[in-house]
């Protein structure tokens, strides 16, 4: 039996509730935190979306909508979304909800990065920084159409 098999057998034997090794406890702490973060982010975004949609329907319900041809929407950057939402108009608040939704997995990655930093797990710190950089590029990289 090599070292890894022994470790696996040990985990299997120890992984009954109450007798989990310290490493398993950290794993479970991280899992619980990530779950809470994802739930809270989704719930917050959904609440903002709901408020925005209610406000939109209150003021613009009679407006005729036609999305057959594509015209870039005016609500189109993370910064301007926060500014527009301050005007307390339905569309602006809805788009804030959309941005909060997009930021939820991004925050999850950021939180994972902090957890790896705390554990001084440098290899995964590097991996997580790469993922985060690509996400930030996607959000702020100004990759315009045409």
């Amino acid at each position: 039996m090599n070292e890894q098999d022994k470790a696996a057998a040990q985990t299997q034997a120890l992984a009954t509730p109450g007798t989990a090794p310290a490493n398993g406890r950290h794993k479970r702490d991280l899992e619980a935190s990530l779950a809470t973060l994802l739930t809270a982010g989704t719930a917050l975004a959904a609440a903002v979306l709901f408020l925005g949609l209610a406000g939109y329907l209150r003021n613009d319900s009679a407006r005729t909508l036609d999305f057959r041809t594509f015209n870039p929407t005016e609500h189109s950057s993370v910064f301007s979304v926060f500014r527009d939402a301050m005007k307390l108009e339905g569309a602006g608040i809805m788009q804030l909800g959309v941005v909060l939704l997009i930021l939820t997995p991004v925050t999850r990655v950021l939180f994972t990065l902090l957890a790896f930093l705390y554990k001084r797990d440098w290899m995964y710190v590097v991996v997580t920084v790469i993922v985060l950089s690509v996400l930030v590029f996607g959000l702020f990289g100004n990759a315009q159409l045409e």
Partner: peptide, 28 residues
Amino acid sequence: IGVTAAASAGVYLQRGQVEPAIAAPVAL
């Protein structure tokens, strides 16, 4: 899936492809 979609959703947001009047009811 959430992280993957967040990467491209960010790009589409900046291109004006995320229309709130469509995205909000669909997501909710």
